[in-house]
Design a binder for these strands. Structure first.
Length: 840
RNA sequence: GCCCCGGUAGUCCAACGGCAGAGACACGGUGCUCAAACCACCGCCAGUGUGGGUUCGAAUCCCACCCGGGGCACCA
């Protein structure tokens, strides 16, 4: 990182007694107020005045992998501006904190250290809690929860069983993503570019029997319910979710395949272009799907097996390579095109995905580049059925995908409208019973089983006689057995399976010998409902107290990283809808507004051990103090933009805070002095700043809020040194406003200022200054006179001036007349009281 | 390939379609000092990525392109 001017201590001292500007001792101030706040407990939800509006300020709970880092510092600083602002506005605020404390890092650490993951986990939680307190986030510390506490995961398990009762949790045997490094399966959402989202290992496939949540049942609602979030969620997140859900309209079309045995088998394909059915000249099925093996002609079976082996060997990463030549194998059977009656070849290829649509496609090479590449590779026929006016793809091997006039398409010929073409074909297919209009989603069900130890056990008992038996509710939680060290080593099956005493139980239904399900749940299950639990963390009659949830939810503001766009945020929305359908809540979206903060990077790149460009939060706080670090984070730029720490100057932030603090020592009037006799210009500046600050916080322009506060500090400094002087009541009013504004960002110095101004703690609950509207009214405003858009004169006018008067004044101005130079005025645009534009 | 977000002084960033500069960093100067740091004051630097369009007027709206960052991607 860039050289920063670090002093030994965050305060500058001189060795001799030379005159110097007063500074406060950052460390002493932090120690002092920590204790006071611990006693006052000022942020307890429910502590606002009776009848206060309730606001839920939520921030994504941390994973306890170590101490807090720069990223936490940023997200919490931004989040806390909003939470503290709401308190100042008199709202009742719920600002809870807890830990997402199940997960692999703790388990891996436990294997290394030969201990139980709880040791590492709970030690880190204490470290982070202490750091959060030092960092002065306005949490309600009475609501702490950890997802790894049995009293929490009891309800995670309970929810799983409720989902299962509703048919939303089920087990199936199918190919799954397998991380060979973490030795567990992964959800689709956790596979990024063919690699494990957590560890980066290349993901392979396995066939396993696993638990799934039926999130696909909610695909359409997850899509539809985004509409009201349009103005309060980042469009990027909405776009990513839409993309992930991947709705596409089209048709299922049935093709009859004549098998080698002479039997006929109907295979359904999904297409978004049923209108091009007349151009379907061959069919392709996913090579790795069962279907391929079932329909292949005997003499082609060996070739198919060889091909499938080849495909299996290549990882998803290889498959992602663009411009890879098309590969495939002829299955030796033919299908009947349902509209043309033609016999077309059936191939297997890896460019058709087994788990999208039906795993089989009709290939229309003329109008799909992938199909065309395949046709070219294997010499399959190409037939144009839409004339787009472009060169014929039969000759150019450039597929045309746009609109055009149908040709070679029987009844569609001559039609020029795609929508009509699609509608007509679907109608025809439905009449004949060979197809139907349909909607397809890219979203897959959520695979929730994990073959690891440190998670919530799946509360199911497998009995040979009774099958899957849910653990009775009164036996929840199913607690983890106390395993440690090598017992936890990943071996491809859950470590729980080897815990004989734990896994062998009697069946709750028949009493016979049975085994517990030895998998644990994906930790994203834990985090899909923690924000409900926060509303009543000690509740024992259910996952949450319905009244408490009614009081606080949906969360008014959720702050966290965009990396959860299609993971946590999608899953939480799904959980909320299910809870709604269960009748447990009366809303369907958990988070009314979402803010994605940017990342803290260094020298243009993400901080990482390998780059050696990490910045240590603890060291930064030791060098500059909590307030300066928080201020730097908030002032850096718009909250959603990345912060390059190399461009930041925490030293400058500290300098500003010292400057603001100094003001509080210069105020000589008594606390409670009425400001009405104070200097009007300074009063106007104060009230304008507060009015604007209100707007700025509410529109999340926190960096500008800081700039406005700096401006007020500068103005007040001038008023003290070369204006009305330190005794003027307006100076007190201004400095008190500065303290309150700063309390959102720099709580320690704000508190110190508040005390020096003669007030009792805590400034955090002092209340937002009331704006005197009359002080916002300006006696004169500057009107700009433009000639052809160029400024030629400025006039001081009344804000109430009429358009006619302003025009007259403008035309009479000497500079304007000179600029006009006798030219003919064609038009005069008047926007009283601010502007006149004369067009010549 | 498709979809988002961004491009304004040396740097980080402001600017309801209406004076391009709020704030800060860095830099320079003056005062204070033996000197420096600190502090106070003053100064400094851009016409808004490029090309068109709309408009009385565009950093802002529209179109095309360039550059940077991110997301999705053999999704039928």
């Amino acid at each position: 990182m860039r050289e920063t001017q670090m002093s030994e201590r965050p305060t500058d001292r001189s060795d001799d007694g030379a005159p110097e500007a007063a500074t406060y001792d950052v460390v002493a101030v932090q120690d002092k107020w920590r204790k006071v706040w611990d006693d006052l407990d000022p942020f307890r939800a429910g502590s606002a005045a009776p009848g206060a509006e309730k606001r839920y300020a939520l921030t994504m709970f941390p994973y306890p992998s170590g101490d807090l880092h720069m990223g936490h510092a940023e997200v919490m600083a931004l989040h806390d501006v909003v939470a503290r602002y709401w308190w100042q506005r008199g709202h009742d605020v719920l600002n809870p904190i807890g830990w997402d404390s199940f997960g692999l890092p703790a388990e891996n650490a436990a294997i290394k250290r030969d201990e139980n993951p709880a040791v590492f986990t709970y030690a880190n939680i204490e470290t982070q809690a202490e750091s959060f307190k030092r960092y002065a986030i306005s949490f309600d510390w009475s609501r702490r929860l950890n997802t790894s506490d049995p009293e929490y995961y009891r309800w995670t398990q309970w929810l799983f069983l409720k989902f299962r009762e509703r048919g939303l949790a089920y087990r199936k045997f199918s190919p799954v993503n397998w991380c060979p490094n973490d030795q567990t399966v992964l959800a689709n959402e956790q596979v990024v570019n063919g690699a494990c989202e957590r560890c980066g290992a290349v993901v392979t496939k396995r066939e396993l029997s696993q638990w799934y949540f039926k999130i696909t049942d909610y695909a359409q609602r997850l899509l539809d319910d985004m509409e009201p979030l349009e103005s309060t969620w980042p469009s990027k997140v909405l776009a990513m979710q839409r993309n992930w859900i991947g709705r596409s309209e089209g048709a299922h079309v049935d093709f009859d395949i004549t098998l080698a045995s002479g039997e006929t088998r109907t295979v359904t394909v999904f297409t978004t272009r049923p209108d091009t059915l007349h151009g379907a000249t061959f069919m392709v099925v996913a090579a790795d799907a069962k279907l391929a093996a079932e329909i292949v002609a005997p003499e082609r079976a060996e070739a198919l097996t060889a091909y499938v082996d080849e495909v299996r060997r290549s990882s998803d990463i290889d498959r992602l390579a663009t411009d890879r030549p098309k590969t495939g194998v002829d299955l030796g059977v033919t299908a009947t095109n349902p509209v043309t009656g033609e016999q077309i070849a059936v191939w297997a290829a890896d460019y058709v995905l087994a788990d999208y649509g039906t795993g089989a496609i009709m290939a229309v090479p003329a109008h799909d580049q992938r199909d065309l590449d395949f046709a070219k590779q294997f010499g399959l026929p190409v037939r144009r059925v839409v004339d787009t006016g472009e060169p014929n793809p039969e000759e150019t091997y450039e597929a045309t995908t746009g609109d055009g006039t149908y040709v070679n398409s029987g009844p569609l010929d001559g039609l020029g409208d795609k929508a009509a073409g699609i509608a007509r074909i679907i109608e025809q297919l439905e009449e004949r019973g060979t197809g139907t209009g349909t909607v397809n989603f890219r979203l897959r069900d959520w695979l929730l089983s994990r073959q690891r130890y440190w998670g919530a056990p799946i509360p199911i008992i497998h009995c040979e006689a009774c099958g899957e038996v849910p653990v009775p509710e009164d036996q929840l939680p199913v607690e983890l057995p106390d395993l440690k060290g090598s017992d936890l080593k990943p071996k491809g099956v859950s470590p729980l399976a080897a815990a004989e005493d734990w896994v062998n139980v009697s069946c709750p239904t028949c009493g016979g010998a049975a085994k517990r399900d030895s998998d644990t749940m994906d930790t994203f299950v834990d985090s899909s409902w923690y924000f409900f639990r926060y509303c009543s963390p000690q509740f024992t009659d259910g996952p949450f107290d319905p009244q408490a949830v009614r009081d606080w939810m949906p969360a008014a503001q959720y702050v966290g990283g965009v990396e959860h766009a299609i993971l946590h945020l999608l899953y939480s929305r799904f959980f909320t809808k299910v809870l709604h359908d269960m009748g447990m809540i009366d809303f369907t979206e958990p988070f009314s507004a979402l803010l994605n903060q940017g990342e803290v990077i260094n020298e243009g790149r993400g901080m990482s051990k390998s780059l050696g460009n990490g910045v240590d939060l603890g060291e930064m706080i030791d060098a500059y103090g909590v307030d300066a670090i928080r201020l730097t984070m908030v002032f850096a730029g718009p909250p959603e933009a990345d912060i390059d720490w190399a461009d930041m100057s925490p030293g400058g932030s500290l300098k500003f805070l010292q400057r603001a603090w100094r003001l509080s020592g210069d105020v000589t009037s008594e606390p409670g002095t009425a400001p009405s006799d104070g200097d009007t210009a300074l009063r106007q500046a104060t009230h304008r700043t507060v009015a604007e600050a209100t707007e700025l916080v509410e529109t999340q322009r926190f960096n500008v809020l800081v700039a406005r506060t700096m401006e007020l500090v500068n103005t007040t400094r001038k008023a003290i040194d070369s204006g009305p002087g330190s005794a003027d009541p307006a100076v007190r009013e201004a400095v008190e406003a500065v303290a309150i504004l700063l309390s959102l960002v720099a709580p320690y110095v704000a508190e110190e200022m508040w005390e020096r101004l003669g007030h009792e703690p805590t400034v955090a609950r002092a209340g937002w200054p009331v704006v005197d509207e009359s002080l916002l009214v300006q006696e004169t405003v500057t009107a700009v006179v433009q000639v052809k858009g160029k400024v030629k004169a400025r006039l001081e006018v009344s804000p109430e001036i009429s358009e006619a008067d302003l025009e007259q004044l403008a035309m009479a101005d000497a500079d304007v007349q000179r600029a006009l130079d006798g030219a003919v005025v064609r038009k005069v645009v008047v926007r009283a009281p601010k502007l006149v534009n004369i067009v010549v």
